[in-house]
Amino acid sequence: MRDGFVRAWYIFYYDLKKYYLKAPVLSWGILFPLTIVLVLGTGFGAYTYSRMIPVGFTIAVLFASTSIVHVAVAFEKMSGSINQLLFLPVKSWEVALAKILGGLLYGFIGAGLAGGIYYYLSHGLGFIHPLIYLYSLTIGSIVFSLITLLIVFWLDPVPAVAVLNIVRFTMLFLGGLLIPKPMIPPIIRPLVLFFPSVYVNDLFNYGLYNRYDYVDPYTSMIILLIYLFTLVFVAYRIMLRILKP
């Protein structure tokens, strides 16, 4: 098991050198979410800090983690070099773990940059429940990475981008982020609860401001864990079955 983690770290470290400055990662993973973060930040007059800042964090984490995982797998699938990786004495879960580590790191980077901007704009940033915030950041990054891993292993690289964007933008509008809860028609609200972004955002909200929109923090934590284990299982099965010559 320990060897497995060492190998995953080895793949992750090499990915770091290869992919972390690729254009799609920088544009979709950093620039786009930071633009949204800035738009939200400059709208502080219209909305309250407590409404906008958690949303900005969630969007930054969502786009940062999904972008790096997408690029790190899609580039290797497109070039065919992933076959060389799978041939080596590594197991599928070690490859998957390496890619998720990338998503986790980028989730932290995205959150760090968003945090920096909000700290500057709001002249300070406090954490009422820092551990809850950290939990949301960690599990959220992993869940978003797993969703991406599932899509990018299942589909060819080009359709994977389209599907990933559909998922990300649906979360943006229907996942409890850009459209505030009171503006969502009651008939659609149960659908909103399907998206993990709701729980990540509620936990950020709770971690920063001791409040939440949809679900109490402990239920959110459990639901995110259920998402995580389900996605681990599904992504692993897909990796085994879908890899084609």
């Binding site: 070039s79 070099s81 076959n83 041939f87 080596l88 004495p89």
Partner: peptide, 29 residues
């Protein structure tokens, strides 16, 4: 995997990597 070597029909490696550096990376596994 420790006991098998494979030469594919169309070997694909990291195109921007130097051969020896890439070899060293793969040997790390």
């Amino acid at each position: 995997s420790y006991h098998v070597g494979w030469v594919p029909e169309l070997p694909i490696f990291e195109p921007d990597a130097k051969a020896l550096d890439y070899f060293v990376y793969l040997a790390g596994y």
